[in-house]
Design a protein around this nucleic acid. Structure first.
Lengths: 182, 182
DNA sequence: CTTACCATGTAAGGCGTTACATGATTCA
DNA sequence: TGAATCATGTAACGCCTTACATGGTAAG
């Protein structure tokens, strides 16, 4: 214990909500979790087989479909494992913002380039914010249907707060560079 | 090109400001850059030797000290390499927030535990925010001394904005869980 | 004199991505 | 019929951290 691989925990977390295929797990990550986590097929599929081998999940073929679907289900041991991890203190949160890195060294590249990095960053955030706002509305409308929903809402609220802070920063940053030009 | 390793770029960026030893580079990262980047000795020292081998930096022994200091200096080629990377568009910014991950699966662990993760997160942020505010004051007081300072200030402002957003979110999140209890 | 910090480095191993490989199905 | 999407997986490789190994120096 204490050596829980994050990829295992994310997968078990998703399986704790519903049975899923590896492909569906990847999709969940690319939509719901992408604001604070990510993973590739190259880590998901091997992890799934590993979870089965350790008895934390089971695998079955989907009989109701013509595709080669492999559906994974969390076991009781899997739930225990997940719960144990969830109650452990957070080890580390990390940010790897290339934008900030490039900006930190902005003096080497000139103001125009720095401004363009800020602009790109802002545009990306502006494009994604509506999805978060939409998710917030949906979740607020069905908070009572499932106790899990308030936890999803929490993470969406986090995204909205930080994205708005990012956008404010973009404006402040642009102003600073322009007023302080050359 | 386009395959610039980030560790090389960070090091060159730091060396573009002043000559440094590997140890000092690590220190800069752990103080100034830690809000958006990190690296260990195990990646810094090999990268330094590699940069020298590629002619992007030079190494010399510090004669003025009794210690075995190895001081690195960026070369013109190194500056070119850095500049090229700086003008390239940002490839990816990424967040790996274990706190958010654990919260997303909060339904499996119960409200008390979720609240405790939020509290720990908030405490960590509250502890770090004063350092950022202090840095902001210092930088504002010497903005004119060096054109690089405004870029440092930019990243500090980013930290302050986002940390304040985090703290606001902590309050909202606690309220949501408490009002929506059990 | 001993603790903390300065200072450099390597080896093993973990973790993950990218690229590749394959093929079915759905929809326009 | 061809493109997009569904669906699963492996192999190679890259990058980094952790733990280890070593020793000097400053300060109390």
């Amino acid at each position: 214990m204490a050596n829980e691989k994050k990829i295992d925990c994310v997968i078990l977390g998703l399986l704790s909500h519903e049975d899923l295929t590896g492909y569906e797990i990847k999709k969940r990550m690319d939509t719901t979790l992408k604001y604070f986590w990510s993973a590739s097929y190259g880590s998901i599929y091997p992890a799934l087989n590993d979870l089965v081998a350790r008895g934390l999940a089971t695998k079955r073929e989907d009989m109701g479909s013509r595709r080669n679907k492999l559906i994974y289900t969390i076991t009781d041991d899997g739930r225990d494992y997940l719960k144990k991890w969830l109650t452990l203190p957070v080890e580390k949160d990390e940010l790897r913002y290339e934008t900030l890195l490039k900006l930190f060294f902005g003096n080497e590249q000139g103001i125009e380039n720095a401004l363009s990095h800020i602009e790109s960053f802002g545009k990306k955030i502006e494009k994604e914010l509506p999805y978060l706002l939409h998710a917030e509305t949906l979740l607020n409308n069905c908070l009572n249907e499932n106790t899990a929903h308030k936890y999803y809402l929490l993470t969406v609220m986090f995204g909205i707060k930080t994205y708005r802070a990012y956008l404010e920063w973009c404006q402040d940053a642009q102003k600073l560079l322009e007023d302080n030009g050359g």
